[in-house]
Simulated assay, not measured.
Amino acid sequence: MSHALSDPRLARLRHRGRLLSAVTLFILLALVGGGLGIWLRPAWIEAIVVPRVGISGYPVTLDGLSMTLGFLIAAVPLAVLAYGLNEVRLIFRDFGNGETVTGTLATRLERFGAAVALQALLNPLVSTLLGVVLTLGNPPGQRVLAISLSSHDVVSVLVGMLVIGVGAVMREAARIARENEGFI
């Protein structure tokens, strides 16, 4: 048995990686399922979506068209979220397989960072579109166009960019590690 396989720190990392991969898959499925499931019940839309998009206090029309369009609009950032969380799941899976400093890890980090940044950039557009869709069936004068940009969105873009940067640094570390293996 090689020293790397008997290292208790690597064994803990592998165990945590396998566990966190499974937890991340559960979270991914719960968030996407819940995010889309909201659109199946008008009461959930009123309780969750309406306040989030900034149209509380305004009348909304929850007919088949608005709920279908809302579902489709909400699916876009949820797809980005699912992609990013799947990259995280794969990172943890790789840790579970004992892979640490690799070009693949760097790529996965960069993809996750891009998903975080993209989702944050989409949030204001998605919220605006949802507000329009949910009030589209209202009579003229009662339709709402609510545009919002939160500090959370700005910070999320920065965090996404940071993760992309860490991925680039990891790529360089993986390259150096490969070169050093050649000298041993």
Score class of each variant (00 low, 15 high):
residue 42 P to I: 08
residue 37 G to H: 09
residue 106 A to G: 14
residue 155 V to G: 13
residue 85 L to Q: 05
residue 51 P to E: 09
residue 29 L to F: 12
residue 14 R to C: 00
residue 155 V to R: 15
residue 62 L to F: 08
residue 141 G to L: 09
residue 132 V to P: 01
residue 78 L to P: 00
residue 116 V to M: 10
residue 9 R to Y: 12
residue 12 R to S: 12
residue 2 S to K: 07
residue 126 V to L: 10
residue 78 L to I: 02
residue 91 I to Y: 00
residue 74 A to F: 03
residue 42 P to L: 09
residue 23 V to D: 08
residue 182 G to T: 02
residue 107 T to K: 05
residue 175 R to E: 09
residue 131 G to H: 01
residue 145 L to G: 11
residue 9 R to Q: 12
residue 159 V to F: 13
residue 134 L to G: 00
residue 92 F to I: 00
residue 23 V to E: 08
residue 63 D to K: 11
residue 155 V to N: 14
residue 32 V to L: 10
residue 5 L to E: 12
residue 121 L to D: 02
residue 126 V to A: 09
residue 5 L to Q: 08
residue 58 Y to H: 15
residue 80 V to Q: 02
residue 89 R to I: 01
residue 158 L to G: 03
residue 37 G to R: 05
residue 152 H to K: 15
residue 140 P to F: 08
residue 52 R to M: 12
residue 183 F to C: 05
residue 61 T to Y: 11
residue 119 Q to V: 07
residue 29 L to G: 08
residue 76 V to K: 01
residue 44 W to D: 10
residue 160 G to D: 03
residue 171 R to D: 09
residue 13 L to G: 00
residue 20 L to M: 13
residue 48 I to Q: 06
residue 72 L to M: 14
residue 148 S to P: 02
residue 10 L to K: 00
residue 152 H to C: 09
residue 31 L to W: 06
residue 95 F to N: 00
residue 105 L to H: 03
residue 108 R to N: 02
residue 67 M to L: 13
residue 15 H to W: 11
residue 173 A to G: 05
residue 139 P to R: 10
residue 41 R to M: 12
residue 110 E to M: 15
residue 117 A to C: 15
residue 70 G to I: 03
residue 165 G to T: 03
residue 26 F to M: 14
residue 45 I to P: 00
residue 25 L to T: 05
residue 145 L to V: 15
residue 108 R to L: 13
residue 81 L to T: 08
residue 129 L to M: 11
residue 30 A to W: 12
residue 153 D to G: 04
residue 180 N to Q: 13
residue 99 E to R: 03
residue 102 T to V: 10
residue 142 Q to V: 04
residue 18 R to W: 04
residue 98 G to V: 05
residue 111 R to F: 04
residue 77 P to W: 04
residue 55 I to A: 04
residue 56 S to P: 01
residue 48 I to K: 08
residue 108 R to D: 01
residue 77 P to K: 02
residue 60 V to K: 01
residue 27 I to A: 09
residue 123 N to R: 14
residue 25 L to V: 13
residue 102 T to W: 05
residue 59 P to T: 05
residue 179 E to T: 04
residue 105 L to A: 06
residue 182 G to N: 09
residue 9 R to D: 11
residue 72 L to R: 09
residue 168 A to N: 06
residue 161 M to K: 06
residue 56 S to D: 08
residue 5 L to K: 07
residue 31 L to C: 09
residue 30 A to Q: 10
residue 91 I to F: 06
residue 152 H to R: 14
residue 73 I to G: 00
residue 39 W to Q: 02
residue 156 S to H: 11
residue 46 E to W: 07
residue 108 R to V: 00
residue 45 I to V: 15
residue 145 L to T: 05
residue 96 G to N: 01
residue 102 T to L: 07
